[in-house]
Simulated scan of single mutants.
Amino acid sequence: MRTRTANLNGQPFFLREWGDETLPPLLMLHGFPEYGSAWSDLAPHLSDHFHCIAPDQRGYGQSWAPEGTENYVLSQLVSDMAALIEQVGAPVTVLGHDWGASVAYGLAMFRPELVSRLIIANGVHPYPFQREMAKGGAQSQASQYINQLRAPNSADWLAADNFAKLEQFFRHGMGTDWLTPDQIQAYRTKWARPGRLDAMLNWYRASPLQVADPGKPLADPPQLPTERLRVACPHLLIWGPEDKALLPETTEGLEDFAPNLTRVTIPGADHWLHHQHPEKVAQAILDWADKT
């Protein structure tokens, strides 16, 4: 693994890279509350086949972290990664997890010329996700934490007692415990950088998606532009079925938006499948890539 800082749209972004630069590029987009090092378990299994590029996205790790919720709308997050792809050389394969999946979908939907193939690992397309969160059912219940994270004082709450609440969320809130003491200390170090935790939470605050109260469906859910939410390129969805935050129904009907979709399930995995079963995730990616 090697590191460098790239200038994207005039701002500094920290990158981690694995594999020879002559190999096909694979852009790897992390979610909350991780940073580019989230891919350190998976990337070595792919680096003989891809030039793996894992940025700390806006607001995370050692990358640019502007103040203000308005700086974290999806169009700006997509613009960051579009600038990186243009530097690397388009089109590329894009892999996204959790919030990184939102940016990956955004690239595939709104900048399709930049994306040759799309891989999502336990992440959701906005339409079926909003559909399920609006019902007031199981996904609404599972997504109640989103409202907690959007609260104005959530950064202080999560950071108290050496990030005890954030560690609890990370370890148990979305799946099983997989973190080592060294790993959690590395995360604490990144979370403690000035302004970072509030910037990370701004991803939640800037999202237009709404969560219904349990048992109370939204009367007027957000109307998403369905015709603009199509994924034309080959799309692989890798799923850990034990995920506590994203339930299987959030992927129902995905074929309506991604007709060239392949699904792979990793039994026994949850939201953190790329840490728990990196060899199986890598094999799923390589087998699919050989066919596409």
Results as ranks from 00 to 15, higher is better:
53 I>Y: 02
22 T>F: 02
220 D>I: 04
14 F>A: 12
238 I>C: 12
97 H>D: 08
90 A>Y: 03
61 G>P: 11
67 E>H: 12
84 L>N: 12
107 L>F: 09
280 K>W: 06
146 I>V: 15
178 W>K: 09
225 P>A: 11
206 A>V: 10
259 P>H: 09
79 S>W: 00
172 H>W: 06
27 L>G: 08
129 F>H: 13
41 D>L: 07
279 E>K: 14
116 S>T: 10
155 A>N: 05
207 S>K: 15
283 Q>G: 01
247 L>P: 06
200 M>Q: 13
180 T>C: 10
97 H>S: 07
132 E>Y: 10
104 A>V: 10
50 F>W: 14
244 K>Q: 13
98 D>T: 08
289 A>C: 02
77 L>Q: 07
235 H>M: 11
163 F>L: 07
229 L>P: 01
211 V>M: 04
74 L>F: 11
212 A>L: 05
116 S>C: 08
174 M>S: 13
126 P>M: 07
42 L>A: 06
267 P>N: 11
16 R>Q: 15
57 Q>M: 15
176 T>C: 05
147 N>S: 14
1 M>N: 04
240 G>D: 11
157 W>Y: 14
103 V>A: 12
126 P>K: 03
183 Q>R: 14
152 P>D: 08
277 H>N: 12
118 L>P: 00
8 L>P: 02
257 F>C: 09
49 H>G: 00
42 L>F: 08
153 N>S: 08
25 P>C: 11
47 S>G: 04
202 N>T: 02
76 Q>D: 15
272 W>H: 13
71 N>E: 11
178 W>E: 10
63 S>H: 01
62 Q>T: 04
292 T>H: 14
181 P>K: 13
67 E>N: 13
139 Q>Y: 09
158 L>P: 05
285 I>Y: 11
184 I>C: 05
103 V>H: 07
166 L>R: 05
79 S>M: 05
274 H>C: 14
267 P>S: 09
8 L>T: 03
259 P>G: 12
110 F>N: 12
211 V>G: 08
34 E>M: 09
236 L>N: 11
205 R>F: 06
61 G>M: 07
148 Q>T: 07
237 L>W: 02
116 S>Y: 04
191 W>I: 11
42 L>M: 06
246 L>H: 00
139 Q>I: 09
254 L>M: 12
267 P>I: 01
78 V>R: 02
261 L>S: 06
129 F>I: 04
107 L>I: 03
45 H>E: 12
3 T>V: 14
80 D>I: 03
81 M>V: 05
